[in-house]
């Protein structure tokens, strides 16, 4: 493949994705959006893993991406079920309203 973009481009892109996800995790208070930011971070890590896998000529990174996708899908399913259960109790999905231990 004719590609004059270097692996560093892909790595910097993946770091940007992780950084954006981290920022979203910090500044959003809606737990749904925090979960989405987590997904974004996992995606960034997937890009980095796949880049290293491609550069190193080794499929292990690709297989790890596969496993990360599996774990992320399961995590989202359980997380959203927990969120629905929490919403039934608290009637809110904002992380501010979950300060049971605060006072």
């Amino acid at each position: 493949m004719m590609l004059s973009v270097t692996p560093q481009h892909f790595l910097i892109l993946s770091f940007l994705l992780v950084g954006i996800g981290f920022l979203g995790l910090l500044i959003r208070r809606n737990v749904l959006l925090m979960l989405m930011s987590l997904e974004l971070m996992l995606n960034g890590i997937n890009v980095a893993l796949l880049t290293f896998s491609r550069v190193g000529g080794n499929l292990d990174g690709g297989i790890f991406v596969f496993f990360i996708m599996t774990v992320a899908a399961a995590e989202v399913a359980v997380g959203l079920a927990l969120l629905v259960a929490l919403y039934k109790k608290r009637n809110s999905v904002l992380s501010d309203d979950m300060g049971l231990l605060k006072n």
């Binding site: 892909f10 890009v47 796949l50 491609r54």
Partner: peptide, 19 residues
Amino acid sequence: ALFVLLESFFLAILQVLVY
């Protein structure tokens, strides 16, 4: 699409299907 550029077509399909 970046996965396609990295020549991991299977993972690109999985990304679209699963995510």
